[in-house]
Design a protein around this nucleic acid. Structure first.
Length: 1002
RNA sequence: GGGCCAGUGGUGAAACUGGUAUACACGCGAGACUUAAAAUUUCGUGACCGUAAAAGGUCGUGUGGGUUCGAUUCCCACCUGGCCCACCA
């Protein structure tokens, strides 16, 4: 009997598999259906493979192996996201070229991956830092440039003073650098930008049809931040410079401020206008050439302090909102024609909407805060509406609607600080006093009548009216849907004089006296809750929808339904806006793809800034820059390779170290043949990973010497894309939901528009895995010293054990905690399989039917679980099956082989070894996936739980398909059951076929 | 502040569409093998009451309610933990 020695067999088989190339995808075999399985490729860091990588790579290795066995042409590729900061930081410290470090790390990763038996197709390996690869990354950039989606802009960028690098908004977390935690500063810098916002609508809409988990979808939607609203113009009136009012724009229009709002229905409550400090009109109004403000210097001073503050400070302040009034000019509210003041305040963000808002303090918290601290008028124009969407009182679609004017009354105790609440008897309602208003009654009269009728108390003092409310709910006692318009009144009882209630009144509800804190816990319906809050805190805001008031001809209408009408009425325009901002694409770094453009001063001077397009051959598109003409590098000169440099630090001016390499920077201008300079910015990390899944499909073509355009539109590439795309299943980390996933979708859609790729979405299905935490539930990190190195585990237990353990540890999409105790379980399991095999090889035994049933059940369970990513329960069912096999007197070779086949994707090494020991010469991984036999799974008997009053008292084993009457008789006859039934009457018997029988006693 | 998710033995976790709660594994306890230990192996292992031992019973899926013959699963409220977003008009 051989001993199970993983180190021996694992080495042997990984060499053999590599030699036989059993995992290579083959496009030429057109008969097999394709399966493109993708996992996110790693950044090859110096720390080596993380056990988290092992978890997700193994999971989809299992799926890929299963797919292959099911007869698919599977591509499960791997590559390297090889540009990145760590290699560059290392270079700065040691002077070792990042390409050397990267190469070393890749070799290590590859060795580790192979030791795990992962079935990646290495013939498709790509590395983003390989010039043959980034030639194409640069080419895609040039296409973006040609199509107006790449542009330069002077932007206040997020600057990390420690890393000396500009950061994308996405890389700033809580105002700090995502990498090093240093607070981020603002700096003005000319940057390359990609106009991802032009794709915002499609990136949002196409999510609806994508098979992504809901949380991924909602995170993307949230990030894109689509909102529908309107742009509305507020005309300006220059009070102290009336002459300016006669100035007209080119179309004869008057000076105006355009605001963006999602709530045009609140315009009658817009009592002032607020501009962001960066707003272009403010910039103009405060420059030296203009003189429109009475307090220009003051405003300038404010803008200076406001813009100096980083975004962090601006958002962190929370409470106090600063701002300054523009003197000498007012805006005209287009709905009311009122003159309203204009303020500049930094709570308005320059990049969202138009950078200007109409402030409606009565219905917006930020505007409310601002109005309060600057003493600005607050005018209510919406009365809240509450639609009951939960029981009790949920609106019912099958019931008729009755609209009624009604009152809500809050009544205070004559002596104590207590208030009346009603507990309803026939419904589970807790409310304030409420009732209808008759035609001839004032609300006050109606409320008084209602209070006396429902409580019997007589002497009440009307104190004040509270804001009205409206509610839609189902009135349970009356059995109708009610649309109630409430007057809300507050009374104080004068004494305890009380008369007895009318007949029946006591049966409807009970009166309870509640303290303020008890009232907080009382389950009031939303409209009553709101009224209570307005009593306790008169400045309670309503920011939701409702019924319009104080709005001229719109008064009484629903705010939601009136939005469009109002926009029309005031001459506004409905628009859609996004939170998503354009992608800052420049990095002042060495270790990235050079941005393939040049700058020519001569051309710019000669051709002038307005000459936007000039062609010389097909390869040049010229775009006017700031002080240079931007000349894209000709396609035939791609790739623009990274030159060797001496020092890797960014320059003090924040330029990339490339700027110091004159021999590289100075080039000849392809147009004027004069001198030009290269762009020294490089692309961000996200560039290479935005299309790597395309590269896997066309590996051979990447090496081609043909021009990229020629190659990419070739029949060869096109047929490869048509064959493999879209990716069938893409798994990755939750942390890439907003950035990588969005960027790659954006590039893919762009390439779709160029008719390069065949579909508009790159990934058919996306899932994400949970992270692997260290033993104590902390994140694994070098500084904590709690990193688990997969190499050590492979050495001690073998790769198969590691694979099984990581699958078994818990649900794949949830986080998992590493446990050095738990890993012994899977190892013992494999040892037992090993021994089991010995028993079979030693003697041929006859078939045992019970074992067949067990195995086929397991085939079914494992097949289903793998598809649903329930790897943990798949492993557990394999264990259950093995336990049964062990217990059995005899296991045949055929039976064991079946079991090995379904275990093979999980533990590829042991299964291959045993498979060969059983006398097979081919690889088990080229076998086909077993199908389960339904007839073997079906059992002849079923076990029925016998319950009395819902409690299980016995179980009954009975033939399948037994009549209900038979089951009932047999169950009743059982001793354990009979003793509970004795002397009792059975009022009901519930029978669920083949599951339970429940006797309900009277 | 807003959104999403989770809470089950000593531990990681199972439980399909509302139908025998705790599968599988770790750990722990007892026995076998051994001079001994490790490894292996057999049995046991939710809590409480009960018994010499059984039999048997009650409780039990974060807390409190509800719907149901029956709830870990559905509904309401609350507590705790995690993740994401956060002046986006």
């Amino acid at each position: 009997m051989k001993k199970y020695d993983p180190s021996k067999i694992e080495k042997k088989w990984s060499a053999k598999w590599a030699k036989d190339k059993i995992y290579e995808a083959d496009i030429s075999s057109g008969t097999k259906p394709k399966w493109y399985q993708l996992v996110e490729f790693p950044y090859p860091s110096g720390d080596g493979l993380h056990v988290g990588h092992v978890r997700s790579y193994t999971a989809f290795d299992i799926l890929s192996r299963k797919r292959r066995m099911e007869g698919n042409n599977v591509m499960y590729p791997m590559g390297w996201d090889a540009f990145g900061l760590p290699a560059e930081s290392f270079a700065i410290k040691t002077g070792v070229h990042p390409s050397i470090t990267t190469k070393k790390n890749i070799a290590n990763y590859k060795k580790q991956i192979n030791s795990l038996g992962l079935s990646f197709d290495w013939s498709k390996e790509v590395s983003t830092s390989d010039p043959k690869y980034y030639k194409w990354t640069q080419w895609i950039f040039l296409q973006l440039l040609k199509h107006g989606l790449a542009y330069k802009a002077r932007m206040p960028i997020n600057w990390c003073p420690k890393d000396k690098i500009g950061l994308a908004n996405e890389e700033v977390v809580d105002g700090k650098c995502e990498r090093c935690g240093t607070p981020v500063e603002k700096r003005d810098k000319e940057q390359w930008m990609l106009a991802i916002t032009k794709y915002a609508e499609r990136l949002d809409k196409d999510l609806d049809t994508a098979d992504y988990p809901d949380r991924v979808k909602s995170q993307q939607k949230n990030w894109i931040g689509r909102s529908e609203g309107a742009e509305i113009e507020f005309l300006l009136d220059f009070k102290s410079k009336p002459k300016l009012n006669e100035n007209r724009g080119p179309q004869g229009e008057k000076a105006a401020i355009k605001v963006f709002t999602t709530r045009p229905d609140t315009i009658y409550g817009a009592t002032f206008v607020v501009l962001a400090p960066e707003h272009i009109w403010v910039t103009l109004a405060t420059d030296n050439d203009h003189d429109v403000l009475d307090n220009k210097e003051e405003v300038k001073a404010y803008i200076k302090t406001a813009t100096k503050r980083s975004e962090m400070d601006r958002t962190a302040l929370g409470g106090e909102k600063t701002g300054i009034l523009l003197r000498g000019v007012v805006a005209i509210n287009p709905a009311t024609s009122e003159e309203i003041p204009i303020w500049v305040a930094d709570y308005v963000l320059p990049h969202y909407g138009t950078g200007a808002i109409m402030a409606v303090p009565a219905h917006d918290e930020r505007d409310f805060d601002f109005a309060k601290s600057h003493n600005l008028p607050i005018r209510q124009v919406i009365e809240p509406i509450f639609i009951q969407e939960t029981e009790p009182g949920k609106v019912r679609s099958d019931k008729e609607w009755v609209e009624r004017v009604a009152i809500t009354a809050i009544v205070k105790h004559w002596r104590d600080d207590k208030y009346i609440g009603l507990k309803w008897k026939k419904v589970n309602w807790e409310t304030l006093i409420t009732g209808g208003v008759e035609n001839n009654q004032t609300p006050e009269e109606a409320a008084l009548a209602e209070i006396r009728e429902e409580t019997g108390y007589q002497n009440l003092k009307f104190v004040k009216a509270l804001p009205r409310t409206h509610a839609k709910f189902f009135h349970v006692p009356k059995d109708v849907n009610r649309f109630a318009h409430f007057y809300v009144l507050y009374f104080e009882l004068q004494d305890d004089k009380r008369e007895s209630l009318a007949d029946g009144e006591n049966d409807i509800h009970e009166i309870v006296w509640l303290t303020k804190s008890e009232m907080e816990k009382f389950h009031l319906p939303a409209s009553h809750r709101y009224s209570w809050e307005t009593l306790m805190n008169p400045s309670t805001l309503w920011t939701g929808e409702g019924i319009m008031i104080n709005s001229d001809k719109f008064t009484g209408q629903s705010s939601q339904e009136t939005k469009n009408e109002i926009v029309q009425f005031i001459g506004g325009k409905g628009v859609t806006r996004f939170k998503l901002r354009d992608w800052i694409f420049s990095r002042q770094r060495y270790w990235g793809e050079p941005i393939p453009v040049m700058y020519c001063r001569t051309c710019w001077e000669e051709l002038g800034i307005n000459n936007k397009e000039l062609k010389e051959g097909q390869d040049y598109v010229l775009i006017s820059g700031q002080e240079h003409l931007i000349v894209p590098v000709s396609e035939k000169d791609l790739p623009v390779k990274l030159p060797k440099v001496e020092k890797y630090e960014p320059t003090d001016t924040g330029e990339s170290p490339l700027a110091n390499i004159r021999s590289w920077v100075d080039v000849k201008c392809p147009i004027c043949k004069g001198s030009a300079t290269r762009e020294t910015d490089t692309m961000p990390n996200w560039a290479g990973s935005s299309w790597y899944f395309l590269a896997f499909c066309i590996m051979d073509n990447l090496k081609s010497k043909e021009l990229v355009s020629k190659e990419i539109f070739s029949d060869d590439v096109q047929s490869k894309f048509k064959h493999w795309l879209p990716v069938d299943w893409y798994n990755g980390g939750m942390e890439h939901t907003t950035l990588h996933l969005l960027y790659s979708r954006f590039w893919y859609k762009f390439l779709y528009d160029l008719k390069i790729v065949p579909t508009s979405e790159p990934y058919k299905k996306r899932t994400s895995h949970g992270i692997v935490l260290a033993e104590g539930g902390e994140k694994m990190s070098k500084s904590r010293g709690n990193v688990v190195n997969p190499d050590d585990i492979v050495k001690t237990y073998g790769a198969d054990t590691l694979r099984l353990y990581e699958m078994f540890v818990g649900p794949f999409d949830q986080m998992a905690m590493w446990s050095s105790d738990g890993i012994i379980g899977p190892r013992r399991f494999l040892e037992r399989i090993w021994k089991l095999a010995d028993r079979v090889t030693n003697s041929q035994q006859p078939k045992a039917n019970k074992i067949d049933s067990t195995i086929h059940k397991t085939i079914k369970k494992v097949s289903e679980d793998v598809e649903e990513m329930r790897f943990n329960t798949a492993v557990s069912s394999l264990m259950v099956c093995a336990n049964e096999l062990e217990k059995s007197e005899s296991v045949s070779k055929e039976q064991l082989e079946l079991f090995l086949k379904i275990l093979a994707p999980f533990a590829p090494f042991v299964t291959e070894e045993i498979w060969h020991d059983l006398g097979n010469n081919n690889s088990i991984h080229t076998e086909s996936w077993p199908e389960f036999d339904e007839t073997l799974i079906l059992e002849e008997t079923s076990t029925i739980a016998v319950q009395v009053n819902g409690k299980t008292r016995a179980t009954l084993v009975i033939k399948k398909g037994a009549e209900e009457s038979v089951v009932v008789e047999r169950a009743k006859a059982m001793e354990e059951v009979d003793k509970w039934l004795k002397d009792k009457t059975i009022i009901k018997t519930v029978y669920v076929k083949e599951r339970i029988i429940n006797f309900v006693l009277g």
